[in-house]
């Protein structure tokens, strides 16, 4: 399975990777880092591996059906999307371009995870509106499990922070 991807696989992977995240549509699945593998296993047959951000993330089902749809439309009638857990997804898997888009969208991107684990001190989280680092944690959980709610002390705006995992 480690053989180099064929041109078809590269094309299909680009298509699947360009599918937008259903909950954060500014990001693609490739930028989020959840598209793990894609293999063409026969004529018109393709297997895709996705990994969930959080174990209970309900978006994974929409991601699967969206990937299935774009690959079918490209002429692959048999698409199998599997969910894999290992290795566990980390916010470090979000690409640099993904981080830039998050900030532009008003969500403070995750910081690199350290050896101390994901629950780090709240230093250096920049307000996506005004750029101040004077921000305060309001709640460890926000509109989705992957975000925390913070407030900027400079511009007083609340904002979401994609928290480190």
């Amino acid at each position: 399975m480690v053989s180099a991807p064929t041109p078809l696989e590269e094309e299909l992977r680009a298509l699947a990777g360009a599918v937008p995240d259903p909950e954060l549509p500014v990001l693609t699945l490739a930028e989020l880092g959840v598209l793990r593998a894609l293999h063409v296993t026969g004529a018109g047959r393709v297997e895709v591996e996705l990994t969930p951000t959080y174990t209970g993330c309900p978006a994974i089902e929409t991601m699967s059906s969206d990937v299935e749809r774009v690959l079918r439309e490209r002429g692959m009638p048999e698409v199998e999307v599997r969910t894999v857990l290992a290795p566990a997804w980390s916010t470090d898997d979000i690409t640099a371009e993904g981080r830039r888009k998050l900030a532009e969208f008003g969500i403070a991107p995750p910081r690199p995870t350290g050896p101390a684990g994901p629950v780090a001190v709240g230093l250096g989280i920049r307000c996506p509106h005004c750029g101040s680092t004077e921000t305060t944690l309001l709640s460890r959980f926000s509109s989705t499990a992957c975000k925390a709610l913070r407030r900027c002390e400079a511009c007083r705006e609340p904002f979401d922070h994609f928290k480190e995992l």
Partner: peptide
């Protein structure tokens, strides 16, 4: 905020339970 936090933790646990 707690409504949201408790529901998010419930969702994490539900994902673990399903797996």
């Amino acid at each position: 905020e707690e409504d949201v936090a408790l529901a998010n933790m419930a969702l994490d646990l539900l994902g673990q339970a399903r797996t």
